[in-house]
Design a protein around this nucleic acid. Structure first.
Lengths: 217, 217
DNA sequence: CACCTCCGCTTTACATTGTCAAGGCTTTAC
DNA sequence: GTAAAGCCTTGACAATGTAAAGCGGAGGTG
């Protein structure tokens, strides 16, 4: 009984799914939110700050999204569409690679998404409002991961990997999520022993994922 | 150049490491913070709310910790001590299990820590202030993980696992972190297909970790 | 044209928050 | 007995999130 029903604002009352983004102001606000969240972390951005950066009045965000939480929810939905798109094009691109290579690529793509769009990643997976309860977010999140689930099933069906499909899927999901989280927070460097060269993070990511996929039964 | 140097309050000026917790008020504040963070997530707790719950004036937290961020930092340091302790007793307890069993147990222990102390876990690994920069927090975090690093090295030296030690360590770390993060946020249930029985989360955690360790070369 | 009604946003207002400066009370030291 | 230190409070300020009411124009209807 927290507050599942958002305040039904006079205008647009919080778009449930992603369709119908509509007004230019709304889009500008999301852009501003993304920028600020990328700079300070999504949980540190203020409603009024976003409005200022977007060049609107301080109450514009509340008007469109109902509340601060609603605003971040909106960013999460936008991010889920983005994630879905990027994973799809990656899978298409890698369609004729060997099975395990496709798994490696997909996991890498997930991590890369988190690094390219840290604000969206946070909004989707790591913000308190994302945590539990919200049915439609839960469903959308699950849907976005169905691509990976299907890929694992396909590779398994083709005999490229063995063992339990669901377990393999869970391993890839949790590992990718862990790597992505640590990478976004800059904590991967702290883990590894050697400071390394220019793109240390990318190398470590590649190394872990590749080892993981190679070890699947 | 954000603000590495905290405000040197007249009294205790933010304890750098964990030693010398001292005053009763300080401890009460940390208790209150932990309670509230467990209920609402660490990023949603307010300075004044913590003070109220602890039965102190609204400025007490600022007095002891310098700032809101400092307060959470303090929780992080406390949590790191706790984590270190718990991992140590677990390793001691499992000293004579076979090598891979010890790895399984340690990883499970890490996840269990996150579930038992979600506020501490967040403060250590998942709060924006934990992200980058802070040298002493970085060092403490790394130190807390040295136990696991040593264990992996030991098991590897004994010939129970092969391959690259550092990679194995990274795999275990990132996987554990991913599982812990998802579990704390209640997102693990959303991943798995079957709703399952009573302690679904624990079963899934066990399954993933066990598979992972079994697959190490 | 006049009128009405939305849509998109603003203005005003208020309770609450984080932070700062200053001060008081108690304990310890000399 | 006086001084100092530790522990905490009171008071104030700017900034935040949220709610309610209002404004201007576009679009349709008579």
């Amino acid at each position: 009984m927290t507050e599942t029903a958002a305040a039904p604002a006079p205008g647009t009352p919080v778009t449930g799914a992603g369709q119908g983004t509509g007004s230019p102001g709304r889009a500008a606000l999301l852009r501003a939110l993304e920028e600020l969240a990328r700079e300070q972390g999504v949980s540190n951005v203020g409603l009024r700050e976003v409005a200022r950066r977007a060049g609107l009045s301080h109450a514009a965000p509340t008007h469109f999204f109902g509340s601060r939480e609603g605003m971040i929810r909106a960013l999460a939905f936008e991010g889920l569409e983005l994630l879905d798109d990027e994973l799809c094009v990656a899978q298409e691109r890698d369609a004729q690679l060997p099975g395990r290579e496709r798994l490696v690529s997909d996991a890498k793509e997930f991590v890369a998404f988190a690094q390219r769009h840290p604000a969206h990643f946070d909004a989707i997976f790591r913000t308190p409002s994302a945590a539990a309860g919200d049915g439609s977010l839960d469903r959308a999140r699950r849907a976005a991961l169905d691509g990976l689930r299907a890929l694992v099933a396909e590779v398994h069906a083709a005999g490229d990997i063995g063992g339990d499909v669901e377990t393999a899927f869970l391993q890839l999901c949790t590992l990718s999520h862990g790597i992505a989280s640590l990478a976004v927070d800059g904590l991967l460097q702290g883990l590894d022993e050697v400071p390394e060269g220019p793109n240390a993070a990318a190398d470590v990511v590649e190394r872990i994922i590749r080892a993981q996929v190679a070890q699947l039964p």
